[in-house]
Design a protein around this nucleic acid. Structure first.
Length: 500
RNA sequence: GCCCCCAUCGUCUAGAGGCCUAGGACGCCACCCUUUCAAGGUGGAGAUCAGGGGUUCGAAUCCCCUUGGGGGCACCA
């Protein structure tokens, strides 16, 4: 029984994509479940589009998600570790060159001198004739002399792999038997560009073989490419890995999830305040299930339950609402200190954006945890929720100050009475929720007001908004001085306004 | 156009011939709790299992066809 070795092979041509993250997760879970090895390999042969910044983002976000790899690069632009390195394809060029030389020597591949223009013209003609695009084989049977002549002309050549008439089938671990006629592969395909750099279909096979990958677990968008890979594995004389093609993550319109139609960068979800536990949990359940009704699962719990049998075959629409719900579930599971720590960067961001004037200390945050924890859909919502506590002044809209059942005069009177009640009945030292509520309720009863209306007027006066954490906790967090000052300011604002 | 794959509530899914008058979750609606907002609790609407043929005593589950959807067909990955 050969060792279980799986890999994620992202291309640093963009930030870590949610689909890549899920594929990485499934590979990770599979490796951990089977005591195997999980490898990260960077496919950076598209030199024009690959950047170190993207590489850094991919590594960073995978680390953040807790999807740890056993072999591969750990630092952008840095060294990598593992016995099958290097793990960046641009550092493995000799290996591809060697494999290419081998195929060329055995005439399993040949130099192609076709120009881009020629190829484009071929494609256009095929399109006009309603034919599927395919390489017509112009250079497939060139003699040594003809090749030499073209080289003498100074023409560069790409290397094409010969696709012979055959039927290729493989046993996909999630979709069972898949079969295709090689006539539908589009003809001989390029494996090395004319500039000498190798192409994906080629490098992936050379590397999967060299790194002794046992299971290729990837997105369904590669299903149609698999026969090409199989042909290459055979030509190169390598043992075939098992294949498992995962269903695609879809946009709401059921097309392959894309940046154009959906938010795809993991970094963006992170910046919004999604916690890695929720993202991992959600992504694992997109296209896979435990087979039970469990759904709140940690990475470890997912690991112990993972299997390829329960992987769905059809694509899965990305449902942000469900992600948000799961995020709330995970936020509620966080310990107080953990939550406080995770909130810091978001509060700092709010301060930098001018949404709050000061970042609270952990000590200030601690007593607020019970009232905010169940109200945060994301960590990033913290400013929206209790930002009024750290701003120098709140903006109060006179119109919202007036409860729906009241008019301007009643509100004005209520705010003044409320202010006096708070000032008179509660001293600066013993400013506590338990001591604030009874006198204010008594006031409402005495004046024949609904307590809720009084509370709402005070709430808006003091926070600037109609939806806040419980009023008395909010007042306590603000402190007597600020409560009174804000009430005064609101009374003033309403007093001058024209609204009724 | 050609090839490949797929098809259970709006969405994610359970279901591997009888346990299904199809279960759970998100979302939605109502009620409870309640000073607002959440959270939580309870209940509800929501799927003729895409359609049509078979096979079988019996099909969401097996087979075929149709339809629909998606993916792939690059000197991108």
């Amino acid at each position: 029984m050969p060792a279980t070795r799986v890999r994620i092979a992202p291309s640093p041509t963009g930030p870590l994509h949610i689909g890549t993250a899920r594929t990485a997760l499934f590979n990770y879970l599979y490796a951990r479940r089977h005591g195997g090895t999980f490898i990260l390999r960077l496919e950076d042969t598209d030199v024009a589009r690959s950047t170190v910044a993207f590489e850094a983002d991919i590594l960073e976000q995978l680390h953040w998600l807790g999807i740890a790899w056993d072999e591969g690069p750990d630092v952008a632009g840095g060294d990598d570790r593992g016995p099958f390195g290097p793990y960046r394809q641009m550092q493995r060029l000799e290996r591809y060159a060697e494999a290419a030389g081998d195929l060329l020597a055995r005439d399993l591949a040949y130099p192609c001198f076709c120009t881009t223009d020629e190829l484009d013209a071929d494609r256009k003609a095929q399109e006009a004739a309603h034919q599927p695009p395919r390489y017509i084989g112009r250079c497939a049977a060139l003699t040594a002399e003809e090749r030499a002549a073209r080289v003498a002309e100074g023409r560069r050549s790409a290397l094409r792999f010969r696709v012979r008439a055959d039927r290729v089938s493989f046993d996909d671990l999630v979709r069972d038997e898949v079969e295709i006629d090689t006539a539908n592969l589009g003809g001989d395909f390029v494996i090395v560009r004319s500039d000498g750099t190798p192409l994906y279909h080629f490098t992936v096979v050379v590397d999967d073989a060299a790194m002794e990958i046992s299971h290729v677990i990837r997105g369904e968008d590669h299903l149609s490419n698999t026969p090409k890979h199989i042909l290459l594995f055979r030509a190169l004389g390598h043992e075939m890995p098992a294949f498992a093609h995962l269903p695609l993550i879809l946009n709401p319109d059921r097309t392959k999830m894309s940046k154009r139609k959906s938010q795809t960068a993991i970094a963006d979800y992170r910046a919004e305040g999604f916690v890695p536990e929720a993202l991992v949990n959600y992504l694992a359940l997109l296209g896979w299930s435990t087979g039970t009704e469990e759904e709140i699962l940690s990475l470890d719990e997912l690991t112990s339950r993972f299997d390829l049998e329960h992987v769905q075959k059809g694509g899965a629409v990305f449902d942000r609402e469900r992600l948000e719900w799961l995020n709330g579930q995970w936020i509620r599971k966080l310990g107080p200190e953990d939550l406080i720590e995770r909130l810091q960067p978001f509060l700092e961001a709010d301060r930098q954006a001018g949404r709050i004037d000061r970042v609270p200390t952990p000590e200030e945050l601690r007593p607020l945890v019970p009232i905010i924890q169940e109200r945060l859909p994301t960590l990033g919502a913290v400013g929206d929720l209790i930002g009024f506590l750290w701003v120098d002044r709140v903006t109060v809209d006179p119109a919202t100050l007036i409860p729906k059942r009241w008019d301007r005069g009643t509100t004005l009177g209520a705010l003044q009475a409320g202010r006096e009640t708070i000032a008179a009945s509660v001293g600066p030292v013993t400013f506590e929720a338990d001591e604030l509520e009874p006198p204010l309720r008594a006031l409402a009863e005495e004046r024949g007001w609904k307590a809720g209306d009084l509370f709402m007027a005070i709430r808006v006066a003091v926070t600037g908004r109609t939806a806040t954490p419980p009023l008395f906790d909010s007042l306590v967090a603000l402190g007597r001085e600020r409560v009174l000052a804000r009430l005064d300011a609101a009374i003033d604002t309403l007093g001058r306004s024209e609204v009724s």
